[in-house]
Design a protein around this nucleic acid. Structure first.
Length: 895
RNA sequence: GGGCGAAUAGCUCAGCUGGUUCAGAGCGCCUGCCUUACACGCAGGAUGUCGGGGGUUCGAAUCCCUCUUCGCCCACCA
């Protein structure tokens, strides 16, 4: 204790200082807090985008990880939480391109090298912002190991991976239909396409037969693609069209003659049963075209404008403008049979929400099936555990239907594909190399490197080992691979989690972690995802400023149960975060009181040392709080272990507020003041239980618990709660009798307080109470805590025995103990009769239904005997209570 | 089109293996208190057909079926 604490906790005045103190001492590095000892425990932080600004999703994700890592750190594990940032190819490139657009420039104006340099400058300027923000919510990651996915080391890992997979035949270049974003001007993987239901139309178009003898109707949702049609397909068994197969239609507007073919992929029941085939703009059509050796005509530019391959009047039109014009012309020609409303899923770019265009192009792919097989096996054999369990089905389902991964991106920001082409006539060698090439290994001539970069996720899927130094065999790699817990969101399973497992198995021979905890999404009260565009976001830093990081963390943790979403109200921060702030303030004030009453080091509660508190020195209340504390240790520990962070927080909250503050501290006060007998015992009990509570709470509320814990007298200056040993349940602390007996004391005080409130007894006025204990045990307990009852119920006297008076307030405790508070004139007899009457009626109903239950032979015969016994006990108790109250009513002369 | 989840107090949610947390917590609301740790507090209180219907069982908020509403994920019927 140095200076007295202010009556109101002010988080901002201590948080940054404490954080600096932690990092100065290197407490977040596993080496420093447990040198060479303890089993490693590793969490890989999902690397935020390097340009990201902290939002609630980060807040939730990182709070969970921090709780887990702090918990395991205190349990003595060599806890490593490894952070990093992701270069985030498309996202970051978009940011800088937008910046350029402000200056009226495009990346093409700068050229590749200058543009990349510009992105680096941007990253260097803003790059550490998200890291600093993560620190301000208390994240105890080992920042000394922070990586960036474009670092030299990780780049080497990326290249090694690409080359090895190529050598194994798992990376290949192919000419396929891929998802193309016409705004980002790049290919996307299937996972990067978000399907949204859109109200569209189904156009039924008439294609005249070549000899003008009739027409064939096709149905399409994208009429503009007809400009690139090279066939019409029907099902081979479709009687309606069988006679047309092999003949030709004249493609309207283009006047190209195209064949009518038969292919089993056509669904005769959909639309007209005839499909226009546009091999360059639809994956199905592409497959059909391959089977029938049809030509592809690409009628769109990368920007999704109509290309030179289409008739001149359409060239240069945007795809949607082209759609209108194509339809208009067809209508004029009488070739539109009808237009149906049609709701269907349309792919959108996950970065810019532009409608994705299927496009035929040369891209690099990873053959996924061989990688997926072991990843699936690791789930099936129980190596991987998902929390919540059902998420494992999502994982397995995706792996089962896995498709090859398109990894090339037509961007400039990212890992350049390590492939060099030789253009020399007669050579044309394609070289895949770990080192940069300047000449062709085949002919010695000049080479040019592939222009494309790799999908961002191609570097992040390696993080569990690339961040530890792979492909080198570093000590870090040997110690911290494999890790343990992955904390992520369900939508990241496919992008990242599953792929990390595949790469881990393939390159390291084992899964990167075993437990996969998938949390929910932060939403507003209308259950909408918080987003910038909706303007329903809550800035975590604003919450930190107003309520403190601990309050933020407490609210996130307690608002979330395993796998459920967290709902916060952006319009009422008070509702969401005041509970956490209030709790912090409660702790602060409890500590203020406790610490001001500790004069020095306290006696140990249990142990062999000479001055240990002996059991015989403990009061009933002491034994009770020690037992409650012990139960809380067990409860919280189990909850943390099971990822039930909300349960852990609730257990500690309950203990601190309801048990320690409301009851124990209130009852122990007289013993703490001055030099009372037993004061040293009281101080020992209150100090020890509060110390334990702070430790149990530390993972959730690290700042305030550290600030208070450090202030205990006798604490070494260097001690930090963040590496204090985790409390363990103690068999000797278990004390069911104390729980029961002190429970009666609490009940009695509550009963008297209720009577006081009921009859408006002035708060300052003391009254008498006469209590008729149901048993000698009850009598002993009440006798023992007589002073407690007197003080907390504000009594002038507490008499155990029968009362001769009649007029007053009556109550009965759960064990049948009768309580009488003589109030004389102050009481309205009629009112008291009514009050007791309601209570008697309530008990009568309980007794009646209980008698029915126990009168049921089936119940008595079939229910387990302990259940039956318990139910009998209940009946007896309720009867006793009822009896007591009935007698009271008689005494009062109620009618 | 397939799969999954949710529905409990005005709000946000606990309630895990059917019976001792069984109808709960916090916020909000009502009444009274500036009781020297805390008004970001203390004490007392009100509020529920546990979404509807059916079933299993001695016993259902809890298990099964079904309906309704909401949400999410997956899907190449153009």
């Amino acid at each position: 204790m140095t200076q007295p604490l202010a009556p109101q906790y002010n988080p901002s005045s201590i948080e940054s200082e404490l954080y600096r103190w932690w990092t100065d001492r290197g407490l977040f590095s596993p080496e420093s807090h447990a040198p060479g000892s303890g089993e490693p425990y590793v969490i890989m932080m999902p690397p935020p985008n390097v340009t990201a600004v902290l939002h609630m999703g980060h807040g939730l994700n990182n709070t969970i990880q921090d709780v887990l890592i702090r918990f395991e750190r205190m349990r003595g594990r060599r806890a490593l939480w490894l952070p990093g940032t992701d270069h985030a190819g498309i996202a970051t490139q978009n940011v800088v391109e937008r910046e350029l657009a402000q200056e009226g420039l495009t990346r093409f104006d700068l050229g590749r090298d200058a543009f990349v340099e510009r992105v680096w400058a941007h990253v260097r300027a803003t790059g550490s912002a998200i890291i600093e923000q993560l620190k301000s919510i208390g994240s105890s990651a080992d920042w000394s190991r922070t990586y960036f996915t474009l670092d030299e080391g990780l780049s080497r890992a990326v290249r090694e991976t690409f080359v090895r997979l190529y050598e194994e035949g798992l990376v290949y270049r192919g000419h396929y239909i891929i998802n193309w974003c016409p705004r980002c001007l790049t290919a996307l993987s299937n996972e990067e396409v978000e399907k949204d239901e859109v109200d569209g139309h189904l156009w039924h178009l008439r294609y005249p037969l070549a000899d003008w003898s009739g027409y064939l109707t096709v149905a399409t949702t994208r009429p503009e693609t007809m400009l690139g049609d090279t066939a019409v397909a029907v099902h081979p068994d479709d009687e309606r069209y069988r006679h047309l197969v092999g003949r030709e239609v004249r493609l309207p507007l283009v006047q190209r003659l195209i064949p009518i073919i038969a292919d089993a992929a056509v669904d005769p029941a959909f639309g007209s049963g005839a499909v226009k085939i546009t091999p360059a703009h639809d994956p199905n059509d592409f497959e059909i075209a391959r089977r029938h050796q049809l030509p592809s005509i690409d009628v769109m530019t990368p920007e999704a404008r109509i290309s030179l391959a289409a008739p001149a009047r359409f060239q240069g039109l945007d795809r949607f403008e082209a759609r209108r014009q194509v339809v208009a012309e067809l209508e004029k020609a009488g070739l539109v049979e009808r237009i149906e409303d049609h709701r269907h899923a349309v792919g959108h770019c996950y970065r810019c929400d532009t409608v994705v265009e299927p496009r035929l192009s040369d891209q690099w792919f990873v053959r996924m099936e061989p990688l997926a097989r072991p990843a699936l096996a690791a789930y099936r054999d129980g190596t991987l555990r998902f929390v919540p369990e059902r998420r494992g089905d999502d994982y397995a389902g995706w792996l089962e239907g896995i498709r090859d991964w398109c990894i090339s991106r037509q961007l400039w920001w990212g890992h350049r594909i390590p492939v060099w082409y030789c253009d020399a006539a007669g050579c044309g060698k394609v070289s895949v190399s770990r080192n940069d090439l300047s000449t062709c290994p085949g002919c010695g001539g000049p080479v040019r490197q592939d222009e494309d970069v790799l999908d961002t996720w191609f570097s992040s899927w390696l993080v569990p080992f690339s961040s530890l130094g792979w492909p080198e065999t570093t000590p870090d790699l040997e110690t911290y691979y494999p890790g343990h817990t992955m904390v992520s969101a369900p939508e990241i399973i496919f992008f990242w989690v599953a792929r990390m497992i595949m790469s881990g198995l393939h390159f390291m021979g084992g899964v990167p972690y075993t437990d996969i905890y998938l949390h929910g999404t932060v939403r507003d009260t209308q259950h909408r995802k918080m987003s910038k565009s909706l303007g329903n976001g809550i800035d975590p830093l604003e919450v930190v400023r107003r309520y403190g990081a601990d309050a933020l963390r407490y609210s996130l943790v307690s608002g979330m149960s395993v796998g459920t979403d967290v709902i916060l109200d952006p319009n009422d921060l008070e509702a969401s975060f005041a509970p956490g702030r209030n709790f912090a303030n409660k702790l602060w004030n409890a500590a203020r009181f406790i610490l001001s009453n500790l004069t020095g080091a306290t006696r140990p509660l249990a142990g062999q040392r000479g001055n240990s508190v002996r059991r015989s020195e403990l009061t009933l209340a002491d034994r009770w709080i020690i037992a409650r504390c012990d139960a809380t240790v067990a409860e919280a520990t189990e909850a943390y272990e099971r990822f039930r962070l909300n349960d852990a927080a609730a257990a500690v909250y309950r203990f601190i507020w309801s048990d320690l503050a409301d009851w124990y501290i209130e009852q122990v006060k007289p013993r703490l003041y001055g030099d009372q007998p037993g004061g040293d015992v009281a101080r020992a009990v209150v100090a020890q239980t509060f110390d334990v509570a702070l430790r149990l709470l530390h993972p959730v509320m690290p700042f305030i618990t550290e600030a208070l814990w450090r202030r205990f007298p006798g604490r070494p200056e260097s001690a930090s709660i963040s590496v204090a040993p985790w409390p363990r349940p103690d068999q000797r602390a278990r004390d069911p009798e104390a729980i029961r007996d002190f429970g009666l004391v609490q009940e009695l005080v509550g009963a008297i307080r209720a009577i006081r409130a009921e009859y408006g007894v002035q708060p300052g006025q003391t009254i008498r109470a006469v209590v008729t204990p149901e048993s000698t045990v009850t009598a002993a307990a009440l006798e023992h805590e007589r002073a407690t009852v007197i003080r907390l119920a504000k009594l002038s006297a507490l008499t155990l025995g029968e009362s001769r008076e009649r007029v007053g307030g009556h109550a009965v405790l759960s064990d049948g103990t009768a309580v009488f508070v003589p109030l004389g004139d102050a009481i309205d007899v009629g009112r008291e009769c009514g009050r007791l009457g309601t209570e008697v009626d309530r008990l009568a109903r309980l007794v009646e239904s209980q008698e029915k239950k126990l009168g049921n032979d089936q119940f008595v015969a079939r229910a387990p005997s302990d259940v039956v016994e318990r139910e009998r006990q209940k009946l007896t108790t309720w009867r006793d209570q009822q009896l007591v109250l009935v007698k009271k009513r008689e005494l009062l002369g109620c009618v």
